[in-house]
Amino acid sequence: MDNYVIAAWLGGFLVGWFVVLHFIILGKGAGSSTGYACAINKMGKNIMGMGNLDPLKLFFILGLPIGGLAHALFVQHSFNISFDMGMYEAILPENNIFKVLVLIFGGTLLGFGARLAGGCTTGHVLAGGAVLNKASLLAGVIFFASATITAQLLFRIFA
């Protein structure tokens, strides 16, 4: 575990208040996956066939790497370019081309699944959870169960 990681209770407290702060400032819940749909919409009109996307979500996800960079520079005091995934190297292909393909495939499932479910970990679990939306809480449980079963199988078969 990286030594900069803050205590779980403190992290949960801060993330929880962040979610509330987002509601207070913008009046709506935070969300990450919608930002990708906004980006696609910018590239070509009407290819999404989806309504009522909040255009601000694109600006939200564009801020994410700024925060990641700020953390690397000011907390970790080092900016390292890496392609290593730690324990995950045990189950991903050694060949970098195949590894990239697996990651693209996994990302595709994340993108498709999030749109079909109407949100990702941010929108459903954090923001939907904060307003105790039953559908979001169910989505969160299925996200977690599906990911845990898949990961357990992957580590049993490939590691």
Binding site: L138, F143, A147
Partner: peptide, 12 residues
């Protein structure tokens, strides 16, 4: 959608 998302989460 949640099921598919979870598989993507585990893979990446």
């Amino acid at each position: 959608g949640s099921l598919i998302f979870g598989i993507g989460w585990a893979l990446t």
